[in-house]
Design a protein around this nucleic acid. Sequence first.
DNA 1: CTGTTAGCGCCTTCAA
DNA 2: TTGAAGGCGCTAACAG
Lengths: 349, 349
Amino acid sequence: MPSIKKVAEVAGVSVGTVSHVITGSVPVSEELRLKVQAAIRELNYHPNHVARSLKTSKTRTLGIIVPDMTISFFPQIIRGAETAARKRGYFLIAVNSDDDGERQKDLLSLLRSQRVEGILLVVAAGTTPISQISRILDAGIPIVCLDRIPDRVAVDSVSVEDAEAAAMGVEHLISMGLRRIAVVTGPLTLKNERRRVQGYRQALERAGIPVEEQLIWQGNLRTADVAALCREKLADAGSRPEAVFCTNGPTALGALRALRDCGLDAPRDIAFATFDELTVDDIFSPSITAVVQPAYDIGSQAANLLLDRIEQVAGLDKTVTIRLAANLKVGESSRWAGHGLGCPAPAAR
Amino acid sequence: MPSIKKVAEVAGVSVGTVSHVITGSVPVSEELRLKVQAAIRELNYHPNHVARSLKTSKTRTLGIIVPDMTISFFPQIIRGAETAARKRGYFLIAVNSDDDGERQKDLLSLLRSQRVEGILLVVAAGTTPISQISRILDAGIPIVCLDRIPDRVAVDSVSVEDAEAAAMGVEHLISMGLRRIAVVTGPLTLKNERRRVQGYRQALERAGIPVEEQLIWQGNLRTADVAALCREKLADAGSRPEAVFCTNGPTALGALRALRDCGLDAPRDIAFATFDELTVDDIFSPSITAVVQPAYDIGSQAANLLLDRIEQVAGLDKTVTIRLAANLKVGESSRWAGHGLGCPAPAAR
DNA sequence: CTGTTAGCGCCTTCAA
DNA sequence: TTGAAGGCGCTAACAG
């Protein structure tokens, strides 16, 4: 691997001159510049970013930690962030925490050791990494939290308007003539889950529908567990709700599995809507009504905010909180047949 | 950001000693070790990997270039590779080429500058980066190609048994009583696409069904283009095939869109099967029959092979080619109603 | 076992 | 405009 020294030697100039033509920071005569460029090509020279970073203490690299990038919401965020970062001359390295607090801690440490200049973080579920976050912030490394916003830390964040988005979904169900609507949530230790439940309550209240606490089903983020929970709740035809609204992708998959296991078809027997688009085509037949988050935008806005912090953009003193609106994608699953709105829906397999 | 020097100062030892306790390469007395560890904690010290890499010329980092990590096949590969890499003490940085040859070139250069120790590459469609690849190989940086294997370069590779996998899918259709089966492919400049078509031919031949060249529909990887192509082919009810087999995810989406646009339902009017699981739930109603690639395994095996190269594992002189088997996931879309096998299938929306 | 020291490759003053 | 030299933080001899 040739170094700058070798290039200087071949070009017959000093290393300083080579450095000048590479960085463009200092003017170099046409003649020497051409010589240097020829030498670079000849040697197939690639500047060593490692050495450069050591010298400048700038890596022009950002890190992003997500729970699991095979969940389609996250790659979209990553792409948004990557594109924004690239536009401003930065790289993005993405890693998965598996929603494991220990691993998240290791990754945070790793990213610090890699000397990333800022971190985008989707906190692992069930953790409250307040101290981890503030230690990093104290060390002068900016962090922007995405999607899941930890409590009681002053940290920049970008997420969807959870309450409004959930309310929009529930209001849609209400507009389809449904009244007894259950909500299936993840752990309520996550603030955005709590917000979504709050949106659910608001929607019901605004419609003058009393909130039944036993229709708030708190699960976790594991599909199998949520399926078991829902099977139990759905078993009794008497108390069964007319509709189910899920606050995230994994719980939605669990709920759908439970519906199938109970021999229930949506929307024939029960209406269904969820937060987040699902990426399965093998469980559920009718198209699914979903509250869709602008994942790409969340990623790009977060990256831009982070870069503003890194580059100390003026007028950015206190904590910035960005909340984006979600969109409602109406599908067939919320078209309750009992209401006689449309043709009978196809059966789930 | 404290340095090793600061730690040494606080602990009252030399930098060498600090280095020894961090790397564990040289024994250090209990007493000093504890002092050093206390200092590290107190200062919130994180070793500078940049400096370490410069010194050791080892970054313990791998790079992976994929066309688009929002296509679900790729994140699975990345996770597999990341997990394998982590087990062996390496990092993985993932970037997207957007199937753009120029960008791929830039990324390759970038990864070299980042001094990654090896590269996992899914080549951008429509490019034949032979010279790029061999330049990197010549520089002593190993590369393993995944999924799409370039022609005429001696490079390690991991992919699915394309011909056999495609044949399996087509044979399934044949077993459902279908004979006139069209195949929708991406660009045949990609070797794996060619292989899949070859598998299609073999399956037909083995079943004694003559291959009709006009049933081989070559498209590209853009859904809209493929949809247009298929609409045209499907327009005439007389020449319409009984089944469609797609050789990849994007063409499958295009074909499905065309079916919908033509008012055709699968499997009621035409049977359908494809390579790769689709991640859309909004276009197609019945569950889809798919030839599923072991994406995670492809990633992990590729990473392990790459690491073997990096670590110069013995008995690995010539080019290694790993081919994995795919699995058939039978869904409803291939259950041709015309054959009277089951109940009439639900309509696509 | 512990300390000292010479670079790794590069950028950046500072002189010429 | 060009060249010479110091040092970023760390590891790996080497000397003690």
